Each structure stands twice: as C-alpha cells, then as structure tokens.
Amino acid sequence: MSESVSTRKFGATSITGARIAIVVPALGAGGTEHVVNLIANHWARAGHKVTLITLEPPNVTPYYEFDPAIAITGLGVPPQRSSKLQSGLLVLRRIQRLRSAIRRAKPHLVLSFLTRMNVLTLLAATGLTVPVIVSERNNPALQPFGPLWKWLQNRLYPRAFGLVTMTQGALDHFPAKMRRRAWVIANAVDLPAGWQKKRGKNILAAVGRLTHQKGFDLLLEAFSKIAETYPEWKLVIWGEGDERPRLEAQRDALGLKARVEMPGVTPRPGLWVETADVFVLSSRYEGWGIVLLEAMAAGLPVVSFECEWGPGDMIKHSSDGILVPRGDVEALARALGEVLGDGALRERLAVTAEASARRYAPERILSEWDALASCALKHAAATRWLQDA
C-alpha cells in the first residue's frame, strides 16, 4: 500500500494525498471543461497530485486557468475527419496512448468525462487495478451516438467503479447494471473573478457551441418574430462551432444582420455576463446548461426551453425564470417579448434568479465530488487497489 495514502484518513467528505487522473477530450471553452477546471484546481489545492489527460496536442493552451501544480498530458490524437479505416486506427492509437499515460500517472483514481472518452478510458484501463469513475455530461437519450459506441458503452459501463450524472433524469435513463454505484452531482456556478455589470444596452444574450443541439436556429426564428416590436434590443450569440456558416446565412435571410451579433468565444471565460441584459437558452436538449445557471447567478432574467435535462431543475417557472415547451418557437417568441417589454418583470426575475443560484455554490458542489472520491478511494484501499506500481 502506498505510504503517502495509507497513513492518511479518508473522511466522509474529504480526501488527502491521492494521485488522481482526470481524462477529458479537450480543455477548450465549454461546460464540461469548466467543471474539470473547478474540480482539478480544488483537488490540487487540497494537496492531491492531479494529472489531466486530453486528446489534444501537448502544446495547446487551455481556455481555463489551471493550478501550476497540475500536470497536463496531451496525447496528440485529437478528433479529425478520416475514413472508417483511419478512424479505427486512430481509436486504437488513442487507447494505447491513454493507457500509457494512465500507467505513468500511477493514479489511485481515474475520473473520465464525456461518453466516447469514457468508453476509451475503460478500454485503456482494462486490467489495471485502479477504480474508474465515468461522468455523463449530456442527455444520454438524445445525443448523437453511433451503434458501435452505444454497444461499447453497454458492455463497458458496468465495469466502471461508478457513474456520475448531473440530473436524476439522466441517471434514470441508464439500466440498473450501469448504476450500481451512482451519483447525481449538479454543476457548480463559478462566475469570473472581478466581473462588473456593464449593462443597459438592451442585449439579449445566448451562449454555447454553434451546434444543432443548442438550437440557435430556433432562437433566430423566434427573435425574428419580435425584432420589429422591440427595435431597441439586439441578440448576441456567443460561441463557436461548425454551424456558424448556416446560422449566419439564416440570420441574413431573416433580415437580422444588423440586429444579431455572433462575436465568437469571449476572451476570458464567462465575461458575457457583464454586458447581457436578458439571457435565453434555446437548446433542443442539455445535460445541464451551465450558462443558464451562470446567467441566474449574475442576476439576469432568463428564458429557457424546458428541455431534458437541467433547466427544469434550475428554474421555477415565473418565479426565477421563464420556461417554455421545448422546441416551441412561437412560445419562445412570446416569452421573450414578455420579458423584453416589461422592465419590472425583468427586475423581479433577476432578483429571484440570483437568490436561487446560490444553491449551486462551488463549495457545496465540490464537497459532493470530495465525497465521491473518498468513497472510491476507501473502496480501493479495502480491495488492495491502492498499491504503488
């Protein structure tokens, strides 16, 4: 048994002196990457040796700032368009390099994020005596997922020490054999340090990757229905992604080029909260929707599709936000018109939203991750998994 771990006590909600490997595809801008940033920094500052393993090249600069004590290992095998044969070879290369990286890190615990990465991690850890926890960060029922990956997920997830989802709805989607040990841990809200309110320019903000999932095409259609009624308001969609050309073409076809801005990713994480006056989430589905929670914590009135899952956990309709049926463009347009046209309503929603968001303070959510890690490490110690290689 490792001396650095065996001489320490694992409390009910705390751990000390562990080596932890966190596996995630990339460290760019996004909700999962933000969560990884919070957890990794928290554990590093608590005295653990944290290694981040990504598919990115070794020299890529993370979007979020990490504690200097954290080791970042880029495997140099990022996603890329290729033939089926090349894709298969690339998957094998990822598994091989991931396995080598895990062995070098000698972790007492491996925590993996996102479905395909979870599958790769479980394959890479086959035969290694280390507990692996997998975390689902999206809607498992609706996210695009090929039949081979689905088959691998069904076969491999039962091997994991445990499964983490952000909502009970997502967890209930998985069969019992995949959730023998399971945790529901919501996302924490963490606004940028030193942010300032620079509001009053009538900005309706939306944030997310420019993908089909985020429903910005539905948002553009909804905004086009109320744009003439509220000429003083403009829509700003923050984010980047493959759908940009199509969304820009749709915006221009709707005659909204002067009313809709798409400036890309903010220079620093979360700075969009400074200039927004109202926030809207138009996703077709979500795992959680961290930007919605960030908007609420920043004291913004919010309007959201009630997509599965996340928004319904955060918002109590008409109290701290407005929920509309998922995908209903007419209902979204009406709700946005209601909020944009009523300053008193915006103020009331903003005050209650900020109060509601305090339920997701980082210290509370991170204590749940501590409890999860403590459980895994205790089990590993009991089954003699905490042995130095």
Rank of each mutant, 00 (worst) to 15 (best):
P301K: 00
P301S: 00
P301G: 00
V302H: 01
V302S: 03
V302Q: 01
V303L: 09
V303C: 06
V303T: 02
V303S: 03
V303P: 01
S304G: 04
S304I: 00
S304C: 01
S304Y: 11
S304F: 03
S304V: 00
E306H: 12
E306W: 08
E306N: 15
E306A: 15
C307S: 04
C307K: 06
E308T: 02
E308P: 02
E308N: 07
E308C: 02
E308K: 12
E308I: 00
W309P: 00
W309N: 02
G310I: 02
P311G: 05
P311C: 04
P311E: 07
G312Y: 02
G312C: 12
G312V: 05
G312S: 14
G312T: 04
G312N: 09
D313H: 10
D313N: 13
D313A: 11
D313F: 01
D313V: 15
D313Q: 12
M314D: 04
M314W: 06
M314H: 09
M314Y: 04
I315C: 07
I315K: 12
I315V: 10
I315Y: 06
I315S: 03
K316H: 12
K316Q: 13
K316T: 06
K316L: 02
H317M: 08
H317V: 06
H317R: 12
S318W: 05
S318G: 11
S318R: 15
S318Y: 04
S318I: 11
S319L: 07
S319K: 13
S319D: 04
S319W: 03
D320A: 01
D320F: 10
D320V: 14
G321D: 09
G321E: 11
G321T: 11
G321S: 10
G321Q: 09
I322V: 15
I322Q: 04
I322G: 06
I322S: 05
I322D: 04
I322W: 10
L323C: 08
V324M: 13
V324D: 04
V324Y: 12
V324R: 02
V324T: 07
P325S: 13
P325M: 12
P325W: 15
P325L: 13
R326L: 05
R326N: 11
R326W: 03
G327C: 12
G327E: 12
D328S: 08
D328W: 10
D328V: 09
V329Y: 14
E330Q: 09
E330M: 10
E330N: 09
E330A: 13
A331I: 05
A331E: 13
A331F: 09
A331Q: 15
L332A: 15
L332M: 15
L332Q: 08
